[in-house]
Amino acid sequence: DELVSKAFSGREGRAFLVNTCINVLPPSKSEERVLMTGRHTVSDVYCRGCGGRIGWKYEKAEEVGQRYKEGKYIIERERVVKENGWELE
């Protein structure tokens, strides 16, 4: 229910857009970035276990058509650990 889309790109390739994210540290300081879909205010998100950066949280989107992303997370597929038998594809 938390998965919004599998068709996103992160810094390291394919990524998931999700509504919420668990086992992460609070988002870092917000900054503006120009991404493939325009200018966004984002905060990097880090794994609570290893401390590695796993993606970012969309805080604000400049374009009206991109505002559905606000409050959602990009989680990079390469950073996801498959456990408990769930499928990535």
Rank of each mutant, 00 (worst) to 15 (best):
R79Y: 06
V80N: 12
D44R: 08
V42C: 10
V4F: 04
V45E: 03
K72G: 02
I54A: 10
S30W: 13
E76N: 11
L3G: 01
S28G: 01
N84D: 15
G85L: 14
K82I: 00
A7I: 08
C21V: 00
V24W: 08
C21H: 05
A15S: 00
E31T: 13
W86F: 07
E32R: 11
G38Q: 11
E63W: 11
S30T: 08
N23Q: 00
S9N: 13
G55V: 06
V18D: 11
G85N: 11
R33D: 04
K82S: 01
D44H: 06
E2M: 09
E32P: 05
E63H: 09
G49N: 13
D1K: 04
E89F: 10
Y68V: 04
P26M: 03
R53S: 01
K69H: 00
V18N: 14
T41L: 14
L17C: 02
P27C: 02
E89Q: 10
V34A: 10
R14I: 07
A7C: 08
V45L: 04
W86P: 05
Q66M: 12
E12S: 10
E12C: 07
V64M: 14
K29Y: 08
L35P: 15
S9I: 14
A7V: 03
V80D: 13
I74K: 04
V45P: 01
G38A: 12
G52E: 07
R77K: 15
E62M: 01
R48K: 14
Q66Y: 15
E89P: 14
R11T: 12
R79G: 09
V64F: 13
L88P: 10
Y58E: 04
R48P: 13
V4S: 02
E87P: 02
F8W: 15
A7N: 09
G49Q: 14
G13F: 02
E89L: 15
E59D: 04
G10Q: 01
V81D: 11
C50Y: 10
T41H: 06
E59Q: 04
G51L: 07
R33W: 07
Y46A: 03
C50I: 09
E12V: 09
F16L: 01
L35E: 13
Y46C: 05
M36S: 12
R53F: 05
Y46W: 09
R67T: 01
C50M: 13
E63V: 00
L17W: 04
W86D: 07
Y46D: 07
V45F: 04
W86T: 00
T20D: 05
K57R: 08
C21Y: 00
R39W: 15
G51P: 00
R11C: 13
V34P: 11
P27R: 05
I54G: 07
G52T: 12
R67S: 05
S5N: 04
P26H: 06
E78H: 13
V42G: 08
R33S: 09
V45I: 02
I74V: 00
I54L: 11
S28H: 06
T20Q: 09
C47H: 05
I74P: 04
G38Y: 11
G13K: 07
Y73N: 02
C47I: 06
C21I: 00
L88T: 10
E31P: 12
K69C: 03
A7S: 09
K60S: 15
R48Y: 14
K60V: 14
C21G: 03
R77A: 13
L17G: 06
S9K: 15
W86M: 08
L35S: 13
